[in-house]
Computed example of a mutant assay.
Amino acid sequence: MLYRRFGRTELQIPVFSCGGMRYQYKWQDVAQSDVPADNQANLEATIRRAVELGMNHIETARGYGSSEMQLGKILPKFPREQLIVQTKVSPVADGKEFRKTFETSLRYLQLDYVDLLGLHGINNAELLDYSIRPGGCLDVARQLQAEGKVRFVGFSTHGATDVIIDAINTNQFDYVNLHWYYINQWNWPAIAAATRHDMGVFIISPSDKGGKLYNPPAKLVNLCAPLSPMVFNDLFCLSHPQVHTLSLGAAKPQDFDEHLKTLDLLDRAAEILPSILAKLEEAAIATLGENWVKTWHVNLPQWQDTPGQVNIHTVLWLWNLATAYDLVDYAKMRYNLLGNGSHWFPGNKADKVNELDFRQCLAHSPHADKIPQFLAQAHQMLAGEEVKRLSRT
């Protein structure tokens, strides 16, 4: 395993973290007696394998159902100083409620403290306010630090880049968990801001949210050769020293194996990546046209400012991925969250595009004339049964 300094925490964090949202039994709290023995055994085997590999950062959240409770049966069996344990609690208006929820997490984990406490889902200005206002969640987190129950405080986010940068620029957080990988590089300015503040940078779900890369389409496999899409994406992310760790959401011990191939390639990233990056760009241009590939996102309105609150940017992005790389299954999964993902995945689908007038909100887009028809094509290609966020299933 390779390690990087996790910003001002000074923790030496493994470049791969063991994420805790795929191996648990349920997305709701259940009694320990309800957890099947084989499920618990698989979770414990996954954690043992992670620690054997040097992947000693174990990451979970109060919102991950039975994950914390099940981890509480295995984590106390390791020497505490060997582990870096992170849990996450969503910010709420009432700081006392935040504390109560954290105490539940700590009790389930059967630990005296966590190394990292993330405020889970600072996705908009309101949730940032809940976090940083006097008496808010961050003040509670500071009290927990003073009591020895938390070592470092950060935040996770699915929010817009400007919201993430606003949170970073408070200089109140030690680290950030955010999305950034090959198919979604919008948050690079936030990573740059975190670097300026010497914060740890943790990449959320690069294999699942980064394209369902554990089940990639043949076209993407061919474009990423000689690497697998998963190893390519890992190498792409970790070739940037500003990125410290990638979360691997393992469902079973073997799920780490493909990722480990990345470790021996890191020293040669500058030699390996350019040809693959060129192939990916050429394929997108061949399918979509160079002008569109390089300028589709220019001057698009935010979802709040569009008729019907259609999330034009996200819909076009998913259409691009499905069209250029055959990432249809991934795009369908994400598209059908629209209208149903609350602040985690905001805005609506393009199902009513023929009834809406986008001329005003697209007035500054170089592709204003084409976008409505592309939105309609996207809906036709991607619409299906509505998808709920995992924590709501």
Rank of each mutant, 00 (worst) to 15 (best):
I272T: 04
E282F: 10
K332T: 07
I47L: 04
Y214E: 08
E258D: 14
N124Q: 07
L116R: 02
Q302M: 06
T314R: 12
W186R: 15
L109Q: 05
C224D: 06
V150K: 04
P226V: 12
H367M: 00
N169K: 15
Q145D: 04
K26H: 12
G72Y: 00
L238I: 04
N215W: 08
G308T: 02
E59A: 11
L235N: 06
M333I: 05
K212D: 12
V163R: 00
D166R: 15
Q24N: 15
V176W: 00
G339R: 02
G65H: 05
F152Y: 14
T306K: 00
S90I: 09
V89P: 05
N348Q: 14
M55S: 01
F358N: 06
E103W: 05
K212N: 14
S247C: 13
N354C: 12
N171H: 15
F98E: 05
L220T: 13
I371V: 14
D351W: 01
L246S: 07
N348K: 11
K370F: 08
L280Y: 03
G210R: 05
K73R: 12
A331F: 09
D94Y: 04
Y64V: 05
C137E: 04
D29C: 02
P229F: 02
I203M: 09
Y25M: 02
K26T: 13
S156H: 01
L356I: 03
L318Q: 05
Q70Y: 06
L116E: 00
T306W: 00
K261D: 04
A368V: 11
E147Q: 14
A286P: 06
S105M: 00
F232H: 10
F16T: 09
D174G: 08
D38M: 11
K88C: 07
T195Q: 14
A194F: 02
W319A: 02
R5G: 06
A331L: 10
D234Q: 02
P366F: 08
R151M: 01
A167M: 08
K252D: 04
I191E: 05
P229W: 06
Y64A: 02
A61W: 07
S66Y: 01
P226E: 03
R107T: 14
Q304D: 07
L111M: 03
L227D: 05
L390H: 15
R151D: 10
G200A: 04
E44S: 14
K96S: 15
I183N: 04
Q143N: 03
T295V: 11
Y3D: 00
I47Y: 05
P226A: 10
I132E: 02
I272L: 06
I272W: 01
N320V: 12
L106H: 08
G210T: 09
D34C: 00
L382D: 03
R196I: 04
G118Y: 03
I13A: 13
A269D: 03
L213P: 15
M21V: 12
K96I: 13
T104V: 14
M21E: 07
G63D: 00
N340A: 07
C18G: 06
V15C: 10
I168T: 07
H57F: 10
E59N: 15
T287I: 02
D208N: 11
F236P: 12
A376L: 11
I276E: 01
V328K: 12
A190I: 09
E385L: 10
P346F: 11
K261S: 08
L246Y: 03
V51P: 07
Q302I: 09
T195W: 02
V92A: 08
M69W: 03
